[in-house]
């Protein structure tokens, strides 16, 4: 027989085995907690500004001469929730490929940051946006117009990536 005895249960004394006194003790603890000071932040008034290590909504880095993304599709491949769709097309620029369509379905996104980690161009990074509100399923699918953010607004995250990635 490959059964291990629950030795912990054997160590309990009679009153503990009765269970009820222990519950009463626990309830005493929780009751006392009710009167302790609270730690809630009053959110819309007191806005929390995350640090560079925070993984908010993924965004595409936009430089002065255009987006960094070359539509390699690695973010789409690595995404465990299949949130990203990329459609590449050809451009005249030196890097001959660009995303004609880049969509992130924020209903699917789980903010894991794999897309950022796998990106060979550091073109998709996690931003600090965390209060996302959508009123329809279609609206939650963000296209390039909503995803492209100028690089000057992403310096914290890029600095964090340089140090720790």
């Amino acid at each position: 027989m490959n059964i291990r005895k629950n030795t912990e249960a054997e160590r309990l004394n009679f009153w503990e085995k009765l269970y009820l006194p222990e519950i009463a003790k626990g309830m005493g603890i929780t009751f006392r907690q009710m009167f302790k000071p609270k730690f809630t932040r009053q959110y819309p008034e007191e806005v929390w500004i995350p640090t560079g290590s925070y993984r908010g909504r993924p965004v595409l880095v936009n430089e002065d001469d255009g987006e960094r993304c070359i539509a390699c599709g690695l973010c789409s491949r690595v995404c465990p929730a299949l949130a990203i769709e990329v459609q590449a097309a050809e451009t005249e620029r030196e890097k001959e490929r660009y995303p004609v369509k880049f969509e992130i379905n924020m209903l699917r996104c789980i903010y894991c940051g794999f897309c950022e980690e796998v990106c060979p161009e550091e073109a998709i990074v996690m931003s600090k946006d965390y209060d996302l509100v959508f009123t329809s399923q279609e609206e939650a699918i963000l296209g390039k117009d909503k995803l492209l953010v100028h690089i000057s607004k992403l310096q914290d995250r890029l600095e964090f990536l340089r140090q720790y990635k």
Binding site: T30, Q33, M34, F35, K36, P37, K38, F39, T40
Partner: peptide
């Protein structure tokens, strides 16, 4: 409310 108080929330 009570769950919040027990967990030191508002």
């Amino acid at each position: 409310k009570i769950s919040a108080w027990i967990q030191n929330r508002i």
